[in-house]
Amino acid sequence: MRLNHSTQLSFIWRIFLTAAASIATLRIGAGLIAWRAANVLEKPTYTVVKRLPLSRGSGEVEIRKYEPYLIAETIVDESSMRRAGSVGFGRCAGYIFGKNTPVGKTEPEKMAMTAPVRSVGQAGEKMAMTSPVRSEGNKKGNTKISFVIGSKYNLQNAPRPIDKSVKVKRVDGHYLAARSFSGPPPSDDRVAEERSKLVQVCEREGIRVKGGKDETYVYGYHDPVVTPNLLRKNEVCVMIDGSGLN
């Protein structure tokens, strides 16, 4: 029996809606799995020293004291952290996932992922980030991209990178003022806006912001593709002088 044109269109439309619903369900399911997996990753250890209200509007700023940790870092000749991130991510991910020489061993070692994504650059008018990496940029075009290395390693036992552009470094203990929010990796304007809020609160509280002019840290705790934007956690931070805060 042949279907008329209207019936055929209705049948095709039902197939399309069913397929779209199935894809959406799979997408949400994969996103939740990715979100849960990221939430249990090892993170740098820190203590919240204070929680301070914003100067205007709702929300708060966390003042944190971080313990030392290691990073795998590479330098990319690019002032935009979004563009530099794709290059730096590949280098650092290669190190974490096996492009390394373990101390006292011959076989490469696959190391565990950690969180958050760390990006550090000059906010100024604009600044961007990618995930899951840490990047540190300046206006001359050099951007540092890095992954956090798990706490079971130190400078003596961490595997040596095969890629000579990747270096294992120690991040000393430090203090940050941090703002948390959900959504996709923040735009340049969003980062600059959040940094401005942090600086205003620090000035109000008499806390000195350290680092170069407009230096800003951007942290991403979840991947920017699979995890739904509503569940993604981002942070914008500035380095501060922690003397007198304890």
Rank of each mutant, 00 (worst) to 15 (best):
A84V: 04
L231R: 14
V218C: 08
Y66K: 14
P159C: 07
M81C: 14
A112E: 14
K140R: 08
A178T: 13
M239R: 04
P102T: 09
G94Q: 05
E203Q: 15
L41I: 02
A34I: 07
R195D: 02
G104F: 01
E194L: 08
L155H: 01
R195Y: 08
C92D: 07
S165A: 12
L52Y: 06
E125H: 03
M129L: 10
N4F: 03
S146V: 03
G137E: 00
K210P: 07
N4P: 12
H5E: 15
R2V: 13
H222W: 04
L17E: 07
S187F: 05
Y46L: 04
F89V: 05
Y217R: 05
N39S: 15
G90S: 11
K99S: 14
A38R: 01
E107W: 07
K43E: 14
Q156V: 15
I15D: 06
F147V: 03
G173K: 03
S58M: 15
T101V: 12
P102A: 09
Y95K: 11
G29I: 04
P184C: 04
M129R: 08
A37Y: 06
I96C: 01
I12M: 14
L231I: 05
D189R: 15
I28Q: 01
E215K: 02
V103N: 09
F97P: 13
N154R: 11
A37I: 13
A123L: 07
I71K: 05
E73Q: 11
Q8N: 05
S6L: 15
I15Q: 14
G220A: 11
A20K: 01
A112C: 09
F16N: 10
Y153G: 04
E107H: 07
T18M: 13
D189T: 07
N157A: 01
C92Q: 02
C92T: 04
V238Q: 02
A128K: 08
F89N: 00
V225Q: 03
